[in-house]
Design a binder for these strands. Sequence first.
RNA 1: CGGGGCGUAGCUCAGCCUGGGAGAGCGUCGGCUUCGGGAGCCGAGUGUCGGAGGUUCAAAUCCUCUCGCCCCGACCA
Length: 569
Amino acid sequence: MRLSRYFLPTLREDPSEAETVSHKLLLRAGMIRKVASGVYNFLPLGLKALKNIENIVRQEMNRAGALEVLLPLVQPAELWLETGRWNAYGKELLRFKDRKEHDFCLGPTHEEVITDLVRRDVKSYRQLPLILYQIAPKFRDEIRPRFGLMRAREFIMKDAYSFDADYEGLDKSYQLMYETYNRIFSACGLKFKAVRAHTGAIGGDVSHEFMVLAETGEDTIAVCPKCGFAENVEIAPAISSEVYEPEPYRPIEKVYTPNVRSAKDVADYLGLPLKKITKTLIYIVEEKEPVAICVRGDHEVNEVKLEKVLGGKPFRMATEEEVLKIVGAHPGFIGPKGLKMKVIVDRSLVNFPNFVIGANKDEYHYVNANLNDTFVPDLVADVRKAVEGDLCPECGELLTFMKGIEVGHIFKLGTKYSEPMKATFLDKDGTEKPFIMGCYGIGVSRVLSATIEQNHDENGIIFPWPIAPFKVGIISFKPDFQEKAEKLYQELSERVDTLIDDRDERPGVKFKDLDLIGVPLQVIYGKSFEETGKVEIKIRRTGERVYLPEEEARTFVLSFGEKQGEESL
RNA sequence: CGGGGCGUAGCUCAGCCUGGGAGAGCGUCGGCUUCGGGAGCCGAGUGUCGGAGGUUCAAAUCCUCUCGCCCCGACCA
């Protein structure tokens, strides 16, 4: 591509609307432009990168035997009524009426549509297993779209659905997709981790998330450096490495603690370590029964675990008013002693000597509380989030924590959709059975964001070779070199996406733009070519420069690409 | 949904407190010079000051309403 004929509106300054690196760089590199909150245009450069990701995904899905389809963005309410999600799905589901006053929605996901498709035309176990996928826009009316493509309302997703005759088949399909996802993200040249995860609203019992590792990730994952254990902290068991030293028994004592509501305030006020101050949180289960949860001041309640402990019943945290009404004291002064409700304590309080609890009276706490002495809990359970210093539940090694961006999620659905939608087939034994389903998503446009979060420096994007919209950029500084640069451009263009900056711009501008848009290799016809006849090749990622005669430069570029391709597989 | 902030040239932003001429830098267009890291000089164009209403002799500026965008939070006490 000739830059003089390309549409590449790069920005020198950070747009004021962007906060995160990937958002800023996507805008500055002229890859995307905002149309509305959480809704974006893809410009030629951005689309090219997106297509590269899509094609990697497509290639690997096809290799796995999945078949590509295209499902509609607009979906009728009828299908969603069948599964009950028309009402169950919140405001994220954008609903509207057509001219005939029929209800429709924009598809945030496609389980209903695909299940409908398959139930109409798949009738026999002989047609199974079947994996269908699409790469298409989705719309979710997010509460708060943010970070550019990271959490957009309209975004590109690859979603796949597997249909099997039995659970053994589902296990196989799931395993196949798990391996395919590993191939996909490797082929993209990303550093990532597959972790066990919470199944969430989509349901099912097993799920894995694929996390691109980046400091700015919104998820935290716990990884064991020894045995390979990896889980989202949303579900990771919390096993403390701490051993509590026994302390002499001290009688419980009520102390005056004015205006200290947070655990940290109480710790500072009493001159005790934060962990000695326990927090008691009041939850309302099924909108009627209050339940108290007790954790150490340096720990946090994990609501995913809590949900399990509470038997999957719906619950929420009590409001300040409710706490006052039920307990008679404000949040911050709540404690388990004398509470007239079910009390669940985190197991980190077992054998924890002489801790502090709220006194259920404003401005007062108890010190020297002890489990089973000061109060007897109804249940001791793991209800906290795992933290630094906790141990691997499988091998006992210290866990490592890292941040990740969720780019893929795979689920076993079972019959969650096939049953209510009466999607059945005739099995070998002549009986009618619901399909056993799985679903597998990749946030394609989010992968682009995540790629940039993981691969950038102060000068701009550093695209991994497979995703780079252009692999090579050619710059020449003297009119005399133009012809030679042009010839190399022609040759390289036959093999890889090549950009030649033929604009009448100053060198600085050309360098800055090539750096900004993340072209992996820059071929420069400048000083070195004039003096020695060798072109200069700059490797964007390392800043390394090599000087080669033109012939060798050509093979260098091509073999560089192949090498990158191999490394990423 | 709660809180905060912003909306002025294509972009980044000043001007608003304390009412009176709509501005700067970058970009764009023309010219000269320059040519290895977002050059210099000369010249040119550039605006419903988000929108509506109000106060006033006079509103980007004060008041009311409204729309849009961004950030933080959505109860970890």
